[in-house]
Amino acid sequence: MLYLISITILLITISFIFDRQKTFTALKIALKKFINIVIPFIFMLILISIVFLFFSESSISEYLDNKNIYLNTLISALAGSISLMPGFIAFPLAGLLKQSGVSYMVISAFTSTLMMVGFLTFPVERNYLGTKVAIIRNIISFVIALAVAFLTGIFFGEILL
């Protein structure tokens, strides 16, 4: 949080010193991008506010965590593979899950497969790469995502070798 604020302030100062015009353009782009996502974002907040009425934060972490972290990682990797969600929704959501106590490894499996594996976009991908190569690419991506999740688990001390 503090990182982000200081890096942003530093970069915008540097940018401003070098090129005032470009910096204003950057701010305009930022505002435009923000406006573009306001509606889907509010929509997501509406859903979350209702869903979290039934599942408290602690019950979510109970579902997603503890007992069998490997199984949960796998389930979360599968969920990420079949979901389609932009980063500006996925990561605030991931941050929320982390706050409620879900482990980094499980979240990493979800966000990594979300980025790399595309079940719903497969028909389009097949058009470009051909069926066989598209399947190979998705399988490789799934394996890489699991490797990422696994090492995330190790580096955050959630699993022991």
Binding site: M1, L4, I5, I7, T8, L11, I12, S15, K22, T23, T25, A26, L27, K28, I29, A30, L31, K33, F34, F41, L45, I46, I48, S49, I50, F52, L53, F88, P92, L93, G95, L96, Q99
Partner: peptide, 27 residues
């Protein structure tokens, strides 16, 4: 209350994230 709480939690970083993205896109 949930809506406001999560809106705050999630939105507090938005201005910084979007400014960074804007800077990258320009430079």
């Amino acid at each position: 209350t949930n809506f406001l709480k999560y809106a705050y939690d999630m939105l507090k970083l938005f201005p910084f994230a979007f400014i960074l993205i804007g800077l990258f896109e320009v430079w």
